[in-house]
């Protein structure tokens, strides 16, 4: 008994130290860097990690690959700015309405869509998001194709309109922390167990009495709520949303890509994926974008290709591999 705990205790302690150090680094680095552009990239990493982590609940843990999550993102973004346009509310006050709309939509379309398998599910989610985009484009009351704007000038701190990117970084980061805590709690409980069972072999899980449909729907609801909140935060920062930037298919794909790159179905995968993708995209654009040759995307795309080629399970795979090697050596 005691012989078994001796080697694990220092490792658990080591993990705590590592965790605290990582958290401290995440909190402190933006204060040490003075460059606002770098700070802003940090904020965007958090924003991307938020949406990718929210997607991860459905796409990673439950294995239902949605490519239409921008639907919920758009609900949040539009609710924020429509609240301002119609009632002159601070954009963030629209967030609860975005979440409510997202939950309602998820409830309505969730049941029939979650019955679909594999690619059929993915395609149906794309169709749903595209439907929403087309409806908004053709509805002048929702800003139509022109889009909706936030306050041109900040009126109070509630408008979340800051010159420095730092407040955004910490706001997005705290929401992310809440989401990750929830994900961690969920993945350790019965729900996480069921979702993994559904992802592995849905039919087998069902035959063992797992109410698959109900758990998938629950995962979708939580995921939709957080994705919508991300949309509201994005809209508050940017002060503008139009159908392409708020409901375009590329945004859905980017959520999937960020999660898949870091490791879907892992707690920190989406954060790691975002921490690589977002700076990569911004840096390649800063370095090559002005040349107008498209080399930005050649580099960006090639790196994604290489990662998928050498770590098809995402970077989490490399991590697991390294750890396995480490334990083998240690043992």
């Amino acid at each position: 008994m005691s012989a078994a705990t001796i080697p694990t205790a220092p490792r658990a302690a080591g993990r705590w130290v590592l965790g605290v150090a990582a958290l401290a680094a995440l909190l402190a680095w933006p204060l040490l860097v003075e460059d606002e552009f770098i700070q802003r990239i940090g904020a965007l990493v958090m924003l991307s990690a938020l949406s990718a982590s929210a997607w991860n609940l459905v796409g990673g843990y439950a294995g239902q690959i949605s490519i239409g999550h921008v639907l919920f993102f758009g609900c949040g973004a539009y609710a924020s700015l429509l609240g301002f346009t119609w009632f002159e509310w601070a954009p963030i006050l629209g967030a609860p309405f975005g979440i409510a709309t997202s939950l309602l939509l998820a409830l309505i379309v969730g049941s029939p869509t979650l019955r679909l398998k594999g690619h059929y599910f993915s395609m149906a989610t794309i169709a749903l998001a595209e439907l929403a985009r087309i409806v908004v484009v053709n509805t002048p009351a929702l800003g139509g194709a022109v889009g909706v704007s936030g306050p041109a000038m900040p009126r109070s701190v509630l408008d979340l309109s800051f010159i420095s990117p730092l407040p955004y970084y910490y706001i997005f980061g705290s929401v992310l922390a809440v989401l990750l805590l929830f994900t961690w709690w969920m993945s350790r409980g019965r729900m996480g167990f069921y979702l993994r069972a559904i992802r592995g072999q849905e039919r087998a899980a069902r035959s063992l009495g797992v109410p698959a449909q109900r758990y998938k729907l629950f995962a979708l609801l939580v995921s939709a709520a957080f994705t919508s909140l991300t949309g509201s935060l994005y809209a508050a920062m940017l002060g503008f949303v139009d159908p392409d930037s708020g409901l375009g298919i590329l945004l859905s794909v980017k959520m999937v890509i960020a999660a898949a790159l870091g490791g879907a179905g892992t707690l920190f995968g989406p954060l790691v994926g975002s921490a690589i993708l977002v700076p990569l995209e911004e840096m390649t654009n800063a370095a090559f974008g002005g040349g107008g040759t498209g080399i930005t995307y050649v580099v960006y795309g090639a790196i994604i290709v290489l990662i998928s080629r050498f770590a098809p399970g995402g970077l989490a795979e490399i991590w697991t591999w390294l750890r396995a090697r480490g334990t083998r050596r240690g043992g």
């Binding site: 606002e36 552009f37 965007l44 139009d242 392409d244 930037s245 654009n285 930005t296």
Partner: peptide, 23 residues
């Protein structure tokens, strides 16, 4: 002149404007 690519995205346009100003 420092030419920056806005990639057709409102968010990238803002990032690049910030980069042009601060960097």
């Amino acid at each position: 002149v420092v030419i920056a690519d806005q990639q057709g995205s409102p968010s990238v346009a803002q990032n690049q404007a910030l980069r042009l100003i601060t960097q």
